[in-house]
Amino acid sequence: MMRIVIQTLVLVLVLTVSVSGQNVTVNNDLVFGSVFPGIPKTITKYTAGSACEFQITGTAGAEITIDLTLPTYMNAGGFSMQLIFSETDCAIDTAATPDQSSPEFDDLDPWHTLTYRLGSNGLTLWLGGIVVPALRQQQGSYSASIVITVQYTGS
């Protein structure tokens, strides 16, 4: 009897440790730096250190959906500044060594659900954008949140 119980407990342990949930890490924020009033500034998804970078890890080969909740304005106190994400501002690379300058999947639409499979090292997502300060944009430090939600599809 004990042998059966032990075997079952081992099975429980195996079931418990053989699978893992996915995890999202923010490697880099979307940083526009200094912006002149009246002069739009673009950060492309290829710009290392300035483009937003998310690292997603989990079960290699598992399919996931990625949803981005994108802001349309940045704020500083009571002031706002327009922020635009176009339909090609996102890129993904699932390679073990992701290449931001030449991503595996380029020109993706960050406004729609993205469905990809995790690679051996997970998946890296980059996001660019453009900020449009008004001619008389109030001076200050502006910010906004970019929320990413990742979920396994079960496929």
Binding site: L30, F32, G33, C52, M74, Y142, A144, I146, V147, T149
Partner: peptide, 10 residues
Amino acid sequence: DVASGQATAN
């Protein structure tokens, strides 16, 4: 899983 990054500008 959900994470939140930031867009920032000065």
